[in-house]
Amino acid sequence: MQDVQSTQDTVRPKRPLLAWFDVRSRKLGSWAFALNRLTGLGLVLYLFLHLVILSLLLRGEAGWDAFIKLARSPLFLLMDAVLIFGIIYHGLNGIRVGMVGLGYGVRAQRGLFWTLMVIGAALLVASIWLVFTI
């Protein structure tokens, strides 16, 4: 690759993470981009949390039963709802990003986003209903 001159601004240095999440005055694409990263980081964090929770099984029946009691509390179920939102959003927006990122549906990306979000909202409502009623 031909060398390109760096565009680094030493007077106004940027923190990459802040650049990703700074959505002030930005449009739909940036909000979708930032939320995708936020849910992605959340899901990675959850994966480790999940493994930690599974390790409770090593403590035997008593340790696991205590956790199950906690998992049925309303606060925990609310956290489940947040988790489901993250999974649904990241998955559906991922379909859009995958399609558009390979050059398909680029000009329809906005409509594609809202269509997938409507599907996602329906899935989220149904999931939350199941979480709180089963």
Partner: peptide, 13 residues
């Protein structure tokens, strides 16, 4: 306006 340009100073843009 590009958020990626803010995290990669060699990005072609």
């Amino acid at each position: 306006a590009c958020p990626v340009a803010g995290s990669d100073a060699e990005y072609l843009g």
